[in-house]
């Protein structure tokens, strides 16, 4: 017990080392949050384009070209590791030193997440019975109005759990931020370890923090799922 107290003091209290973790927590949260917002926005747009073309709802050449671009985008993003994407963004795309690392991380994870979110949304839209679509159109709604008022609200409800899980994955994935020397929880913990030569407490502590956040989020997701189930539909 005495040993633990000393270790705890050394790793977290002495020289205010807890700040590495605290700052890292802030970075992890803000990168995850803004990347998620960006991912939802872009992912939703991609899903709209993809499902519109999939349904054969449009003969526009412009949309078909856009769909082609989206497909390439999805293939590249989902076919390469997030870490490589992060390094490419930092060292190649934004090689200027004036760009904030946090912005680079948000953009990278946002673009990465958008690919997965797009496929989640698309599967949600495609899972809605074609009859819903026809009912909307037969009342006089345009394609866009039918999507807006009838299809996407139902699709969104169906994919909420999958979407929430995607963001839990995203949160854990941000642990590679350290590779561009951005201090997130993982990088903070690793910095402490390198100063104290004590691997146990910093690393296990960081793991515990992730675990707690994920548990809280998961609990939130299952509450959401329960509420959606009991909701009259």
């Amino acid at each position: 017990m005495q040993g633990f107290k000393e270790d705890f003091y050394l790793n977290f209290i002495k020289d205010d080392r807890w700040r590495y973790i605290a700052d890292g927590l802030g970075t992890t949260f803000s990168v995850t949050f803004f990347a998620a917002v960006f991912g939802i926005f872009l992912g939703f747009l991609i899903a709209l384009v993809r499902s519109t073309v999939d349904k054969g709802g449009s003969k526009s050449v412009f949309l078909k070209v856009l769909d082609g671009i989206c497909k390439v985008y999805l293939t590249v993003i989902r076919g390469t590791p997030a870490m490589i994407q992060l390094l490419i963004m930092y060292y190649i795309v934004f090689s200027s030193p004036n760009v904030s690392k946090q912005v680079v991380a948000i953009l990278t994870f946002g673009l990465n997440s958008a690919a997965y979110v797009a496929e989640i949304f698309r599967s949600g839209i495609m899972s809605i019975d074609q009859g819903q679509f026809e009912a909307g159109r037969s009342l006089g709604f345009s394609y866009a109005q039918t999507m807006l008022y009838i299809i996407t609200p139902q699709a969104f409800k169906n994919v909420l759990p999958a979407l929430a899980n995607e963001f839990i994955t995203l949160l854990k994935e941000t642990s590679i931020c350290g590779y561009i020397a951005l201090t997130d929880i993982t990088h903070g913990a690793n910095t402490i370890r390198s100063q104290t030569y004590e691997p146990y407490l910093p690393l296990l502590g960081a793991a515990l923090i992730y675990l707690i956040i994920v548990c809280v989020l998961t609990a939130g997701v299952s509450r959401l799922e329960r509420r959606l189930r009991t909701d009259a539909r």
Binding site: G131, Q132, E134, R137, S138, L139, Q154
Partner: peptide, 15 residues
């Protein structure tokens, strides 16, 4: 289409 009402075999109410 606003002037042409349609009723389907499987109702298609908005759930």
């Amino acid at each position: 289409r606003q002037k042409i009402g349609m009723v389907f075999q499987h109702f298609h109410l908005f759930p």
